[in-house]
Design a protein around this nucleic acid. Structure first.
Length: 273
DNA sequence: CGAGACCGGGTAACTAGCCT
DNA sequence: AGGCTAGTTACCCGGTCTCG
């Protein structure tokens, strides 16, 4: 397995967190991978064999080979059908809205083919170029040229949205929205509207995702003595609350998650910065 | 039987539709 | 954009379950 992350060009660094590539040779029994929400929006190109995404225990769809995955608020289960070779762009929560015309809310919890987001011919041309490119460096150049040409006004990230997200991230989602609104020159309703437009999910929901990510990181890196400790350190009011959120966002409970090597592996892959 | 893991219900906080 | 309000979700705190 080969997972790599790369940094974006300075002009796009405010919108793009990183690029990543993943290569895994075909396995006889390719395991299902669990993808946990991380608050980011991804544009992904599948360069290897098809990837299935389960929509229930038994039903699945084949993911589009060039797609955008919006905010997710539930776990995604994917499964390779052969060898894995993916190239993806990870956008900050507010980083993708400026590139498209349709409300970003419509991208949540699913894959959208890029042909549905941009001019069809343009999208096809981009996909072809990415597929045919000799290496990741060239792919990044292609994608950056494309994105820069689509970026109408680079300075349109709403400052209030950005500072709200920063606050939520720094406090692991524990700051109440009321407190955030008090410090800003905006009303609650207005902040929600801005989030809906720029991020695609509500402020509270994004905070929830950040808090879970903080807890996950702690669980994976620290090898905790007990889970109660993790709950408190990641700003959960109590264990009950921690477990409830954990189950909602990852599909399993914390103990089970820690005891399954495969889950740990896949969440490390997808959550690494 | 004690400690950690987990569940459920009432209330406070949040979200979203509609009106101005 | 701001304000009101109904419906929804999260918080908090009570409890049970499981395992040594």
């Amino acid at each position: 397995m080969n997972y790599q992350t790369l940094q974006p060009h300075a002009d796009l660094a405010s919108l793009i967190k990183c690029y990543w590539t993943l290569e895994i040779p075909a396995q006889m029994e390719a395991p299902k991978q669990r993808i946990v929400p991380d608050g980011c929006i991804e544009m992904a190109f599948i360069l290897g064999d098809d990837i299935k995404r389960y929509t229930s225990d038994t039903n699945f769809i084949i993911q589009p080979r060039a797609m955008v995955i919006g905010q997710i608020t539930q776990p995604f289960f994917i499964e390779p059908t052969g060898h894995v070779n993916s190239f993806a762009i990870r956008f900050y929560p507010y980083g993708f809205a400026n590139f498209i015309k349709i409300p970003i809310k419509e991208l949540a919890n699913k894959e959208t083919p890029i042909s549905a987001l941009f001019d069809k011919k343009e999208a096809e041309a981009l996909t072809q170029k990415i597929v045919n490119a000799p290496n990741t460096g060239v792919r990044i150049t292609i994608v950056e040229d494309f994105l820069l040409s689509k970026l109408k006004d680079a300075s349109t990230i709403d400052r209030i949205v950005k500072s709200t997200i920063d606050t939520l991230f720094l406090t692991k989602g524990s700051t109440s929205i009321d407190v955030i609104v008090k410090d800003q020159s905006t009303r609650r309703r207005n902040l929600e509207r801005k989030f809906s437009k720029q991020v695609g999910i509500s402020p509270k929901r994004l905070g929830k995702v950040f808090r879970l990510q903080a807890a996950l990181k702690m669980m994976l890196l620290k090898h905790p003595e007990n889970l109660t400790q993790i709950a408190y350190e990641s700003e959960y009011y109590d264990q009950a609350h921690f477990i409830k959120d954990f189950k909602e966002l990852t599909g399993t409970n914390p103990k089970e998650f820690l005891s399954d090597d495969q889950m740990i592996l896949s969440s490390l892959i997808y959550s690494k910065d």
